[in-house]
Amino acid sequence: MATTLTPPDTDDTSVPPADLPPGLERNAEKAESRRGFLIGLPAYAYLVLFFAIPLAIVVVYSFATRSPSGLTVLADWNLRSYVRLTDSLVLAITWRSLWIATFTTVVSLVVAYPFAYYLATRPPRTRAILLVLVMIPFWSNFLVRTFAWRLLLSSDGPVTRILEFVGFANPRLLFTPTAVIIGLVYGYLPFMILPLYASLERMDHSLVEAARDLYATGWEAFRKVTWPLSKPGVIAGSILVFIPSFGAYVTPEVLGGTGTTMLGSYIGRQFVGTASDWPFGSSLSVAILFVMMIAAMFYFRSGGKDL
């Protein structure tokens, strides 16, 4: 460094040769950030137009009033829709959505974990094939696939027949919470498999060997090493399954019955169905969004960062 120092200034007009005029550097940085903004612009524009603005409209509507004829009056702003969130019917539906989503998440985890482990320990070629197989359902329409389940689960469908054959008397699946959970697990299983696979695949297999070498049984090695190290995948997968299950609309509509209304359907009914209460539907949506945001923040604060 010392050799690059310029001699003491004897001439005020001299500029050290290495230094650019300060403005130039700042301009270059500005241009750089402008370019970055331009690259991001299409996505920005799309999100603002189709996400932020509609969301703002929903928030605004949640404070509006429903006229007796079922139309929304954008006047007389009030909190009545939010007060209604504590209605016993709303609480019951929320509770049902919660436990169905929780159950779906747990079942998905139990089903997906062994598969993800199997996937992560296959040779690369087999892995690629299996991953494609996991993705294949996405290539066909979700609604169609859900209706297919309706056939499978119907009272003379194969699943019911098999259950009868095994000895269940009069099994009734369709239009029950069980059917909804089956449908949700089916729909969201890949969202559990993929993050689990990613975290297991990243794990150094010699860690398991080290645990076994240090007298751990296979189960102990899993519990002490594999499981804790795959936790980021477990958490990510659980969030990815829980959130859409909690707000599910199509699956409970198609496979559920009157007794299995979930929040998604209930909100939908406020907009397109008989209820026609847009302010209430909006307040429900805002409340769910708020709760989910809190949950996500909690996740990123705690587990998200140190893993």
Partner: peptide, 18 residues
């Protein structure tokens, strides 16, 4: 199995539990 053997291993990658 490895856990039933009176030996221990130092791994090339160390394989320390992170």
């Amino acid at each position: 199995p490895p856990n039933k053997r009176p030996v221990n291993t130092v791994f090339q990658s160390y394989a320390l539990f992170p």
